[in-house]
Computed example of a mutant assay.
Amino acid sequence: MTPLPVLLVDDDGLMRAGLRAVLSTDDRLLVVGEAADGREAIAATRRLGPRVVLMDVRMPDMDGIAATREIVRVAPEARVLMLTTFSDDDYVLGALRAGASGFMLKRTQPEELIAAIHTIAGGESLLSPTVTTTVIDRLAREPEPDPAVSRRLRLLTPRERDVLLLIARGLTNAEIAASLQVEESTIKTHVKRILSKLNLRDRVQAVIFVYESGLVRAGEAHPPVAAREAHPRI
């Protein structure tokens, strides 16, 4: 099996060396390059075609958030996993809104980091529990939802809205399927349609969208799923 290509981006050479050592313990991963700032990261992504970019947030010249925004634009197949010592909510939301597929703290255990890389590469999104709490708490302090964002919800069918709410609760496709009593393949189709209709990159952005739209406010009970007949038509 061809190893998964990974790009390391951090202005600290010792940190890059440490990450390279950690990833070398998994023969399914291959570090194809390194970069010391955002501009180098963009150039390296164009040149090397990594599947996953491990991106630091605070770097000179161009930070990780600006670099992520550009990488997502020029190489949409690349997945960005932010890895930083900072859990500041501005950085977290900025990175996720820029298109990062996950955000983890550098104190993450090596095995957890490796698992996260594979998760990101597989098309899923990932946030550590601490980061998830930070995101939701920050969104709770934001002003009233943008009407333009709320209007986008009208693009969804009632069942797609149900699925979106369950995504916001952090449920997996399998758990959503069990909740709605349908096949998991049906939920996968719904998720693809939701992301396409709302022009969202992945599930992380879907969660942010739910809170930004006002469909759910942080601190509320789990959002209810509208009642359906015993055997709903999908």
Rank of each mutant, 00 (worst) to 15 (best):
M1R: 05
L7D: 08
V9P: 10
M15G: 07
A17N: 14
A17S: 14
G18A: 09
L19F: 03
V22N: 02
V22D: 06
T25R: 09
D26M: 08
D27N: 06
R28E: 07
L29E: 08
L29I: 15
G33P: 03
D37H: 11
G38Y: 07
E40A: 06
A41D: 05
A44P: 07
P50H: 03
R51I: 11
L54K: 04
D56M: 04
P60D: 03
G64M: 03
G64C: 06
G64A: 06
I65S: 03
A67L: 08
E70P: 00
A75K: 13
R79W: 04
R79S: 11
L81T: 14
L81P: 15
L81H: 13
D89K: 06
V92W: 00
L93R: 12
L96E: 04
R97D: 05
A100Y: 00
A100W: 06
S101A: 13
M104D: 03
M104H: 08
M104C: 12
L105S: 00
L105N: 00
R107Q: 14
T108Q: 10
Q109Y: 04
I114K: 15
I114P: 12
I117A: 08
T119F: 00
G122V: 02
G122M: 07
G123Y: 04
E124S: 09
E124F: 06
L126D: 00
L126S: 01
L127T: 11
S128M: 10
V131F: 02
T132K: 12
D137K: 10
R138K: 14
R138T: 01
L139D: 03
R141G: 13
E142K: 14
S150M: 10
R152V: 01
R152W: 04
R154D: 15
L155M: 14
E160H: 13
D162E: 15
L164F: 12
I167D: 01
A168V: 06
R169V: 08
G170V: 02
E175A: 15
E175C: 10
A177C: 07
L180N: 08
L180F: 08
Q181F: 05
Q181W: 02
V182N: 07
I187R: 01
K188G: 15
H190E: 15
H190Y: 13
V191A: 05
L195F: 05
K197Y: 10
N199P: 01
D202N: 15
D202H: 13
D202E: 12
R203Y: 01
V204H: 05
V204G: 09
Q205D: 07
V207T: 10
V216T: 12
R217G: 12
R217P: 11
G219S: 02
G219K: 04
E220G: 14
A221W: 06
R228L: 12
R228V: 11
H231A: 05
P232Q: 08
P232K: 00
P232N: 06
